[in-house]
């Protein structure tokens, strides 16, 4: 409980910092006042239409990715499982790109997040089918690399086939992710589906706890493997798909956060899930603050920062696997 309280405080603090940070130099207090109470002039527009959606999406998407990572790792019992590394985010991005380029996203309101959701669901289902609940790290990573590569190639192909001259330059956005200049409409596209997905995933906590005792023990405790699997596929896809549709594929959040928090919660998935959600929100908000501080003039992609933090940790985990550590 102390951990949850501390993480909540950290997230709230980072959320406020995110709101007070931007190219237009306005005092934090004046900005917050304009955000809450409106007023004349352009400042309320800046706060409500530009900074608020960015901060909300950082919170929402970071939280979702942290949660999805912790759930996948709990289910596959493998700390290398992470939405982007195993291609689920990439497949979500591919679905989003196809929806945008075919005009599905403009044809009806939920076309974009639903297409991304379908892509992510396909990715996570394919992964579970390939790696299986007892698949080793190598199988998991190989399957993930294959799915992620195919998704990346699909994104590049679709964007290069587009008649739009700007489309091909957006490969980086889809593969690395960014929250720059998102609007409240993006929040409304992603929020409902992501909340639904989070509820589904959080509800698996007890079953994942039981699974740590082994599959037979879990079955004896009344956990239905098929039901758990589908609940996770749907939940993860509902989180990762819409998140990717509005912010691109942001990697490593779902890897780093559960790994750091696991010792604090006694390695119990049911306690790790909410803690990872908060930790993920804090990590993504911090990364999004950092991209605005490092090169404010440019749209540095979020994936650059999360990978700088996450890739060494990933290597460390691989190293432990090779050394015969328990994974």
């Amino acid at each position: 409980m102390r951990l949850i309280a501390a993480l909540s405080l950290l997230v709230a603090l980072l959320f406020l910092v995110s709101l007070s940070l931007g190219p237009a130099e306005v005092g934090s207090l004046r900005g917050l006042q304009a955000l809450l109470f409106g007023g004349d002039g352009p400042l309320p527009i800046v706060m409500r239409e530009i900074r608020l959606p960015r901060a909300i999406l950082g919170l929402l998407i970071g939280g979702g990715l942290g949660l999805a990572g912790a759930a996948l790792q709990g289910y596959l019992r493998n700390p290398l499982a992470e939405p982007q590394l195993i291609g689920v985010s990439g497949m979500g991005a591919l679905g989003a790109v196809i929806a945008i380029q075919t005009g599905l996203s403009t044809a009806f309101a939920l076309g974009l997040p639903l297409a991304a959701l379908a892509g992510a669901a396909l990715g996570v289902a394919a992964l579970m089918a390939l790696a299986g609940p007892r698949g080793g790290s190598v199988t998991l990573i190989l399957a993930g690399v294959a799915i992620a590569s195919l998704a990346g190639a699909g994104i590049a192909l679709v964007l290069n086939l587009s008649p739009n001259p700007y489309a091909a330059a957006e490969i980086m956005f889809w593969l690395m992710g960014s929250l720059a200049d998102r609007s409240m409409s993006h929040v409304w596209l992603a929020l409902p589906l992501m909340v639904l997905g989070s509820a589904l995933v959080l509800a698996t906590g007890r079953a994942l706890d039981a699974l740590t005792l082994g599959e037979q023990a879990a079955a004896a405790l009344g956990v239905s493997p098929a039901r758990l699997r589908w609940q996770l596929v749907a939940g993860v896809a509902l989180i990762v798909g819409p998140a990717t549709a509005v912010a691109g594929a942001i990697g490593f959040v779902g890897l780093v956060v559960p790994h750091i928090l696991r010792p604090w919660v006694g390695a119990r998935p049911s306690r790790l899930l909410p803690a990872s959600a908060l930790g993920g929100a804090a990590m993504l908000l911090a990364a999004d603050i950092a991209v605005r501080l490092i090169v404010p003039e440019r749209d540095l992609k979020l994936g650059v920062l999360t990978a700088i933090v996450g890739a060494p940790l990933f290597l460390h985990l691989i190293w432990k696997t090779r050394a015969g550590g328990r994974l």
């Binding site: 352009p42 400042l43 380029q101 957006e170 956005f173």
Partner: peptide, 24 residues
């Protein structure tokens, strides 16, 4: 975009839309 909004111009001339779609 923030700086543009803060300058509060009387008129915004936006770029033309190319065929197809893009995030940009």
């Amino acid at each position: 975009l923030e700086k543009l909004v803060m300058a509060d111009p009387d008129r915004v001339v936006s770029g033309s839309h190319m065929p197809g779609r893009s995030q940009g």
